[in-house]
Design a protein around this nucleic acid. Sequence first.
DNA 1: TGTTTGTCTATTGTTTTAATAGACATTATC
DNA 2: GATAATGTCTATTAAAACAATAGACAAACA
Lengths: 153, 153
Amino acid sequence: MRVSAKVDYAVRAALELAAADNDGAPIKGDRIAEAQKIPLKFLENILSELRRAGIVGSQRGAEGGYWLAKPAASVSIADIIRAVEGPLADVHGTPPEKLKFTGPAKPLKEVWVAARAGLRSVLDEVTLADVVAGDLPPVVADLVASKGAWSRR
Amino acid sequence: MRVSAKVDYAVRAALELAAADNDGAPIKGDRIAEAQKIPLKFLENILSELRRAGIVGSQRGAEGGYWLAKPAASVSIADIIRAVEGPLADVHGTPPEKLKFTGPAKPLKEVWVAARAGLRSVLDEVTLADVVAGDLPPVVADLVASKGAWSRR
DNA sequence: TGTTTGTCTATTGTTTTAATAGACATTATC
DNA sequence: GATAATGTCTATTAAAACAATAGACAAACA
């Protein structure tokens, strides 16, 4: 699982929007870029994609900026990833449920489907609101507590 | 999670070796390539990496070929991935446990650690022997049975 | 000694990634 | 209505990763 710079930036930018309670006024790209150390122009591209996905709203002009277009509790980390990169998981360009393997590799399809489900069990469950509140769902606590979760292998 | 062609090939090649009970005689790269439709030269590069990682053994010359250097039940899918691509998961080039976030993004570290743990819960548990036998561990069955596991989102 | 096979190093073309640039459209304020 | 501040859109680019491919070389066996 390689989390790209783009996804990393997108998630952090969305969190800034979810956290900012700016009396309903839009937040400037500039301010997000500075707060999270993200290259401004790259961030603007990303925020445009999030807008096209209906996750953020925007306003041009002076006093313009961005805001979250949905309740923070209804936007998952996976939603952000899908908005900027497409499907969460694929194998050599194919979605897991469409894979066909032959010979001893046959059961591999179930393995990749399960791997995706393992990822989803975290990324589909955690919302922007959870992260902002620092109160993550039980599934995260369980996984994080599992042996060796914090060490490299 | 993007499973590259290389990882896909490596896992399937390893499964061919795990499945082949060729009276202890080595299996030719040629035969694996054909059975799994993998470009021969690319496969040879991959098998060399698996050999350097101690997962397969090899013999040159006529009657040469490859074999599994360990019991199939002791090699996990994650072992194969790590051998050919390095760590299972990273965020923008950094392993999850070393991440540092600021402001509202602070709890993100736990989220990425949990996501990696979710992946590991499948990929560290499933061995080549499991796949060859078509008898996957309970964690796979559970995840695969979870709602929506087989559909795209 | 010759043939078959794996090993190693290098190279190539394509795609993706991560960013940058600049013209343009919109909005609020003066 | 002019101006300044902002987001939008299209294009470009440099670097890296990806997916192979090539060929000389080394080892093993018949």
